Computed example of a mutant assay.
Amino acid sequence: MISHATDATDSTVTDEALRSLSGTADPRLRDLLTALIRHLHAFARETRLTREEWERAIGFLTATGQACTDTRQEFILLSDVLGLSMLVEEINGHQVPGATESTVLGPFHMTASPARELGATIDLVGDGEPCVVSGRVLSQDGTPLPGATVDVWQADRHGFYDVQRPDVQPPGNGRGLFTADPEGRFRFRTCVPSPYPIPTDGPVGELLAATGRHPYRPAHIHFIASAAGHAPVTTHIFVAGGDYLDSDAVFAVKDSLVRDFAETDDPVLAQEWGVANPFRHAHVDLVLERS
């Protein structure tokens, strides 16, 4: 029979829990669980966690799981607002100077982006400010990567993704999967993104309210760029001069990812690119690290 000391500071339960992992065949799993148990037990001791607080935490995590659907990932949202998602990105980010910095995936990469031709629009509603995004996918030495894939997704001008308002937006609105040309170039039409609040109608929203935090993200477009022989990068570009760049609810802004969405008055270029003139234009080179 196992007996535990009545004083939590002298309790043997942590040692016993750690010993229970001795038969774990996967060494990485054993290391992860060992660290998790040590830190969770230390947290409980440091805060003198009460039974009521423990029960409330269990209820919160249960509600977080229940809020997840095929098109909503509340646990990723929770990880985002706690800064954990961004920390994992920083730990696993690029090591090569000049490579594009990574940032969070976010909770709305839940459906496959439809394949689209270069220069096509991802704005299927067409009620936002016209914008063209162009760029190149490059290797770390500046060599273009022909055939690289560029997965993009963004909210509409009202700050909602297609999966949030399927009665208003057609499936795939704000999304596109593009293949870079022989010079590594890509281009697509869209609308200028707007700042928006992350979903606040679930447990994560309650957490933000309880801590007095706002739910807003600065205006941005998501990217995942990948090419053979290179590590893919998950990143954003943020609209320069916009609100919330210094207080992103998910801590994902990096200076290197802020881009000018410059107003462009060029009727010839507008006709070539199939967009109304004047329009906004942003350029981004996505630089991948060799794998």
Rank of each mutant, 00 (worst) to 15 (best):
H94N: 10
V163F: 04
A210Q: 12
E117M: 11
I91S: 00
D127W: 04
D246W: 12
L78T: 12
G128T: 10
Q73G: 05
A228P: 02
F43G: 04
L105D: 06
E101Q: 15
Q271Y: 05
T190I: 07
P114T: 09
T14C: 00
L61W: 07
A252E: 11
V152S: 05
R28M: 12
E206L: 10
A219Y: 09
L286T: 05
D156E: 05
H158P: 07
M1I: 00
P232I: 02
V81E: 08
G212H: 12
L124P: 03
V96L: 06
D201N: 15
T264G: 06
F108H: 14
P218W: 09
T200P: 00
A57R: 02
A209C: 06
G212K: 13
M86I: 14
V152Y: 02
F223Q: 05
L78P: 01
V268I: 10
G106Y: 01
T24M: 06
S256P: 09
Y244M: 01
G174C: 09
M110V: 11
V168W: 07
F261Y: 14
E16Q: 10
N277R: 06
P218L: 02
H230C: 08
E55I: 00
T179E: 01
E101H: 06
V287W: 06
D123E: 12
T47W: 03
R185L: 05
I122V: 15
D285Q: 04
L21M: 02
D141A: 13
R38T: 14
A227M: 09
S102P: 09
G176N: 08
S134F: 12
V284G: 05
T235I: 13
S139P: 10
Y216P: 08
D285E: 15
G172S: 00
F238I: 02
T9W: 11
T47F: 12
A228F: 07
T71W: 01
P107A: 01
G274H: 09
V287Y: 05
E129C: 03
G184H: 09
